[in-house]
Nucleic acid binder design. Structure first.
Lengths: 291, 291
DNA sequence: CCGTATTACGCTAGCCGTAATGATG
DNA sequence: CATCATTACGGCTAGCGTAATACGG
């Protein structure tokens, strides 16, 4: 039988020309290669090399065989890649979210529910990336600001949606701030402010830029550093009803609710309709968090 | 390393479902298969089977792997096929001819010239099959009734042609035949006759049918049988100037020359222009037979 | 019980590396 | 004489078969 190691060595020989070089590259002795190539010729019943006493060169048929060897090896590598990839997918629960807050809730739930599996959470800025990911199965679940009601050709729903957590933003101000006495604020009241924000906040980023375009955004990628700066400075920053669970202290600042509808949102968990049963336990847990 | 035998056994397992059946088919013991599959899982680092105590079934990933296994195996088989085929071509000189007589001359020449190689001679009825065969390299040489003067885009000739033997047909008649006294005949004089012919005679077949359509052809595929019948009967048959070398005796028959130009033909040996040098010795030998 | 998969165990085929040999430039 | 391929030889890995074990319909 023609075994993989022969094919591998043949391909390497075409690339590196001499047995010694192949031996060096494949970390194997020269005689081993010499023998393998003899055995390969023997298995095929065909001479693949022109041999002089101290030189071995692929002949025309050998070159042909080597080109085919590359095809065989790439088929094998593709097999390995595909199998490992399928296995990885099978052992990871991957979801995407339009905002960070739902991830704080969902990841712990999933960790409990799918013990031993890897939970991969992906934050995205726009719906379409998430929906596309759900459709091509790179996400098993996505979190959006609305449900999905698309139906297929025979009128059956394509997706299954369930309301998830509700998020309300407030603005955190030093007590001495000009707006600190207000009972509530709108985003446009923050015009001209310097705002401390995290730089990975999903759809919030677009909302902020759109509704308070003339503010200065001081973006920080590391969450703990951001918290430090918030505490150490007089700069305004955002807090959410959902971040309270993270136990972030307000210090001597005051949180004033924002009343714009863009920052009082309902999240939805959405999966493909065909996975509805499979994810029943997950959606039960989600249901318990709706309030 | 994932070796061929593992991939082969995986594919067989998908087809035959149980280890015992695979063992039977591949002429190997059951435990061997069991171990191979464990080793394959180990090499991939992925579980491919659902195992109960006395049942092993491919899981979803195993099915995927088995489908890929088929791809790898077919790539390998294609490699083996292509290499053996190329080798066979390299060790056979293959040519095609429009008529049998040139083959009687050419095959002995080639046998001498290419000692140790197989000479494959192919008789065809029409030019186009031969030219196509020359173009796709399934023939190294062809014999036609004319040369080929095609040129490529840059004006160079595509083919190299050389005149070969000249063939003249005669008709062999019993001395008592109504035409036996004639010095020469035309094909149309044979109208209405019963003619003994070989059934594999290349372009001659078309010539006969066209020029003497109302004759009865008694076709015989075995050459020695044909000779027997010719000798034992009073039926007319064809002889050629080239068959004399085969030492066929006329017995008490008489050979009368046919004067139609269709049965007085010049054969040409033709190869691809790029092979002209390679076949120099062959064409030298051919040249010596032109007369 | 018969069919099936796995484990245990000893065998050996065959692949490997080292060393020696031979050829070449 | 440095480089490269092949041959010879002994060691050892690892795949094999037989036999034993265990489970299930």
């Amino acid at each position: 039988m023609i075994e993989t190691y022969m094919i591998e060595q043949l391909a390497a020989l075409q690339e590196h020309k001499t047995l010694s070089k192949v031996a060096e590259v494949l970390h194997i002795s020269q005689p081993a290669i010499s023998r393998s190539m003899q055995k390969l010729e023997d298995e095929l019943g065909v001479k693949l090399f022109d041999r002089t006493k101290n030189r071995i060169v692929l002949n025309a048929i050998g070159e042909l065989a080597a080109r085919h060897a590359l095809v065989v090896l790439s088929a094998q590598n593709e097999m390995i890649r595909a199998v490992r990839d399928a296995d990885r997918r099978m052992h990871t629960f991957s979801y995407g979210s339009i905002a960070p807050a739902p991830m704080w809730e969902l990841t712990p739930i999933l960790s409990q529910l799918y013990m031993g599996m890897t939970i991969a959470a992906d934050l995205q800025d726009t719906d379409d990336v998430l929906v596309r990911g759900l459709n091509d199965d790179s996400y098993q679940l996505i979190v959006l600001l609305h449900d999905l009601r698309d139906i297929d050709d025979s009128g059956h729903p394509i997706y299954y949606s369930k309301p998830f957590v509700h998020e309300k933003l407030s603005i955190l101000l030093p007590k001495t701030h000009r707006l600190a006495q207000r009972k509530s604020l709108k985003l446009k009241d923050l015009a001209g402010e310097k705002l401390l924000i995290h730089d990975k906040i999903g759809f919030w980023y677009g909302v902020c830029k759109r509704k308070i375009p003339d503010a200065t955004y001081l973006e920080q990628s590391d969450l703990s550093t951001l918290t430090e700066i918030v505490n150490a400075s007089d700069l305004p920053s955002f807090v959410t009803n959902l971040s309270e669970r993270l136990g972030i202290a307000f210090g001597d600042k005051i949180a004033i609710p924002l009343v714009d509808e863009e920052v009082n949102v309902q999240f939805w968990c959405i999966c493909k309709a065909c996975k509805k049963r499979e994810f029943a336990a997950l959606f039960n847990a989600v249901e318990r968090m709706q309030d």
